[in-house]
Every structure is written in C-alpha cells, then in structure tokens.
C-alpha cells in the first residue's frame, strides 16, 4: 500500500534526480577534459548554464509554432517520469506501477518523437536533418533495448523495474552469463540513446555530424534550459537504470530509513565511477559515420538476443 514514507521517498527521488542530473553531466565533462589533457571546466558548469539560460529571453524563430513551445515541457515531463520510476535509492516507489520497463521504453520514445517534431518545426536544414537521424537511432536502439528487458524480465519473472531490481539485488550469488550479454548490449544502447561519442558527439561544432545538437539549434532561453536539463536527466535515468539492473547492491529494499540513507553515498560513488568510465570510453573512441550506427546498434541487438538465448539454454530448468 502507498505509505507516507513511500511518498516522501518518491518525492525525494525526483528531487535528487533533478539536482544530481546536471552534476553528473558536469562530472562527465570534467573527466573528459582530464582525459584529453585540457583544463577542466568547473564541476558546477551545468548549473550556471541553466541559471543563465532561464534568465535570458526566449528568441523564437518566425516560423516556430505552438508545438515548438510546448515540446520542451513535454520532454522534460517525460524525463521526470522516467526518473521517478527508475529505482535509484529505494525500490519502494509509489509511482513505479505507473510504467513497467516496456512503458519506460515508451516514455523515452514519446520524448524522442516530440524532440524530433520540434526539430522539424521551424523548417531549417539542420533541424530536419537532426530529427531524421534521431528517429533513425531510435528505431535501431529500441529493439535492442527491448531484448535486454526481455532477458531481465525472464530472470525476474516480471517487467516491473522495481521487481526486477529487487530480485536481482537480493538473490544468492548466482552468475547469470546472460546478464553479461544484456549488460554490454545495454551499454551500447545507452551510448546511442544519450548522444554519446561513438554515435553522436555532445561537444561537436560540425553541423553535419550532429544529431542531438542539430535538433535543438533553434532553441534558446528557458526552452533550451529545459531541453538541456532533460538531456542530463536522461543520462541520469539511463545511468541509474544500468546501475540498478546490473549493479543493484545497495538499493534500499523498502521504507527502511537507514538503508535509504546508506544508499545515497553509494549511489554517488557508483555514478562517479560510471561517469568516469563513460568519459574514458568517449575519449578512446572516435565518432563513427552515421551509417555505421546501424552496425553498432545491430551488434547491441545481437548481443541482447544472444543473452536471451543463453538464458534459455543455460539458466532455465532442464
């Protein structure tokens, strides 16, 4: 049943996500700078950016429609919902039944459709290019992500993210080879979905190679702030999902206050390590051509399918 502590925990999880997400982006940026022997920007740079953007006037293109102005809020809402149902600290989330893992894919899909539509709204060359590429990455990534979810759902006998995490976190030490496959596939998909290096470059200045950046070229002021914030929330959501699914230790099982408090530093530590690794991988890889992306995501899909098959062969009762 929904308890007061559960509601508080839920509100806290959302707030934590809102606060931590820009920090995570800042941390990844800083690590990237270290890896590349540059002077690192301040850790809190994303916050300054958001503050600055919120203060600025919105400069709209003449051709921008009402959809263009609504889209940032919808995208932001989708990402908040995603962060609300992914267990970061505790699995006792009253909002969790609202969307299981399949619906979570749907949430990201909805945000993707809105950002692509918004990109094409003003009717500029780069905007439509970005929108088309984003949808391309989307339809390649979603099947792979679903196969990962299938593998996990079969292990936990549930598609509810909270139940999966609970099952995985509180089991006796059993090695699931299928999880290794699923984990690698999930990493591939997260790179593509979050516009990170092998697929897209978040720091690019070449318009023709952009995906995410090309879509938001026309945004400014509070709209841009919301989209940037939503992008960092997405990175946070994917990181938390990955951590919760493949390294679930330390997530509080229920409304246990002490466990919840203990989960916070652990989460910070895990995110810090994750961000560090992400920056490292981004540094040693080169961005690939857009038409290599199908191969990259095809590999992710194949790994996920292999995970599923291995699960059926090795881990089901013979």
């Amino acid at each position: 049943m929904i308890s007061i502590s559960g509601l508080l925990g839920q509100a806290f999880a959302i707030l934590l996500a809102l606060v931590l997400a820009p920090l995570l982006s800042g941390w990844v940026g800083q690590c990237r700078a270290w890896f590349q022997s540059r002077t690192a920007p301040p850790l809190l740079l994303p916050y300054y950016m958001l503050q600055k953007l919120f203060r600025k006037d919105v400069v709209l293109a003449h051709g921008a429609s009402s959809l263009f102005r609504v889209a940032p809020f919808v995208i932001f809402g989708c990402m908040v919902l995603a962060c609300a149902i992914i267990p970061s600290l505790s699995t006792d989330l009253p909002l969790a039944p609202a969307a299981d893992a399949l619906a979570l894919v749907g949430v990201f899909g909805l945000a993707r459709v809105f950002i692509s539509l918004a990109a094409m709204d003003v009717g500029t060359s780069f905007g439509s290019l970005g929108g088309r590429r984003e949808m391309l990455i989307g339809f390649l990534a979603e099947p792979a992500l679903l196969m990962v979810i299938f593998t996990l759902a079969m292990t936990a006998q549930s598609t509810s993210v909270a139940t999966i995490v609970e099952t995985l976190a509180h089991r006796e030490l059993v090695i699931y080879p299928s999880l290794a496959f699923a984990g690698i596939a999930f990493t591939f998909v997260s790179f593509a979905e979050n516009a990170r290096v092998p697929v897209d470059n978040p720091a690019t200045h070449l318009e023709l190679t952009m995906i995410h950046e090309a879509m938001i070229l026309e945004y400014s002021g509070r709209h841009l702030a919301l989209i940037e914030w939503a992008a960092s929330l997405k990175l946070y959501a994917y990181s938390c999902l990955g951590l919760a699914l493949f390294f679930p230790w330390g997530i509080a099982p229920g409304d246990n206050f002490l466990a919840l408090v203990a989960a916070i530093p652990l989460l910070l530590l895990k995110l810090a390590i994750g961000g560090f690794l992400l920056a490292g991988i981004e540094t040693v890889n080169a961005k690939m051509r857009i038409f290599r992306a199908p191969e990259f995501l095809g590999t992710a899909f194949m790994l996920a399918v292999l995970g599923l098959l291995v699960r059926l062969l090795l881990e089901s009762k013979v």
């Binding site: 090695i175 080879p177 299928s178 290794a180 292999l306 291995v310 090795l314 881990e315």
Partner: peptide, 13 residues
C-alpha cells in the same frame, strides 16, 4: 558449473 557456463558464454561472445 555456473563459472563454466559463464566462460562458455564468453567463448560464444
């Protein structure tokens, strides 16, 4: 056996 299964899976990978 789980360990061997894991190694086998890695060989497949």
């Amino acid at each position: 056996a789980q360990l061997i299964n894991l190694f086998a899976a890695v060989i497949l990978l």
